[in-house]
Design a protein around this nucleic acid. Structure first.
Lengths: 203, 203
DNA sequence: GTCTATATCAAGATAGAC
DNA sequence: GTCTATCTTGATATAGAC
């Protein structure tokens, strides 16, 4: 009994290591340029062993997306409890800040929106869809609350705001600014939080 | 003499057709998923003939980028002459609107920022770099002018604004909103122009 | 479940005739 | 310069031994 549990723990740990590698490689090179050989080499196991855990490259990517969504959910949960009194707009800014921090840390997997085999794998992956909906729901309630509180522009359809927040989580502008070497990570985040919520125009 | 000129015209027309196909396919599927076979089939010539005109897939992409940059330059030139009296902020909004229209028309080639062989080909392509700098310079002068006029946030470094405008030209939010089918193209553009310049927060 | 070795195939690029 | 046919490579995925 204990033996089986231990085996499962080892299995989990290995799969965890795989997903970590995939996550980092997806953040670095993107789905199309990431190869399964690379993943296997990075984890330190044979490619065939990888395929015992995950049946395809798309499944690997889906696992990484599920992990990042779960990290996001954990963050949302923490904010909802420990900072429950904070106004909705501050919750949303905190989330946006968190996504930018993840991206600057090289831990935000970025998938091409166009790849159809990948899209098919994701849209039929219940675990992924469930978490995506959960994140969307939680953000959605903060969005409408912030609009009602007069903090977010009420003329914007909530889904426009939601999509925009998702998009800013993988905004290429972060990478461009980091490349210039002129700004610290915190400066970059503050600048982009500003352009996102306050716009380019003077207030 | 006339014969040579005619031949060259035919050649140009063919290359133009090639670049048009590449441009559309890049907008549809992106660089990694676009295949040279596809391009050849779309143009209606053999793949080997393609390689007589362009020496690599990267060169094809570069040609498409050069074309879109030249279209952008033509637009900038037109605004600078025919609407020379318009305030800089309006010029910038007009440019942003134009890029979104191009994107919604399925004519905005989108290249992955991560592909290194492509990056190498682009950064060593003088024609591409020249046009990119030209576009950046023209936008840059409008940006500083708009900041001095108090229309754009003067606390933002100009390059942050420049990068943001470039990024919005291929913002995935446009495609997401179009997918919902709830908005007309003009509505989408107005919404995103609003979030870009005025931000998500209420003014 | 892990490995080595290999099948399979798609895609970039080229040879050589016309 | 265009074509057909082919080369070559790299990457997903699998077979089969242990």
């Amino acid at each position: 009994m204990a033996k089986v549990s231990f085996r499962e723990q080892v299995l989990r740990a290995r799969e965890d290591a795989i997903v970590s590698s995939v996550n980092r490689l997806l953040a670095e090179k993107g789905f199309d340029l990431m190869t399964v050989d690379e993943v296997a080499a990075d984890v330190g196991i044979a490619k065939a062993s990888l395929y015992k855990h995950f049946t395809s490259k798309e499944e690997l990517a889906a696992a990484a997306m599920i992990r990042i969504l779960e990290r996001a959910l954990a963050f949302l949960e923490e904010r909802a409890t420990q900072s429950a009194e904070a106004p909705a707009i501050e919750q949303l800014k905190a989330v946006a800040r968190w996504t930018m921090q993840v991206q600057l840390a090289g831990e935000m997997p970025s998938l091409p929106a166009q790849n159809s085999s990948l899209r098919a794998a994701l849209t039929t992956n219940k675990a992924y869809i469930d978490r995506l909906m959960e994140v969307s729901d939680r953000l959605g309630s903060w969005i409408t609350a912030a609009q009602e509180a007069g903090a977010l522009n009420p003329a914007l359809p909530p889904e426009v705001i939601l999509y925009t927040l998702f998009a800013r989580a993988c905004d290429p502008v972060l990478g461009l600014l980091k490349l210039t070497g002129q700004y610290s990570d915190e400066q970059i985040i503050d600048l982009l939080l500003g352009t996102c919520f306050d716009g380019l125009a003077k207030r």
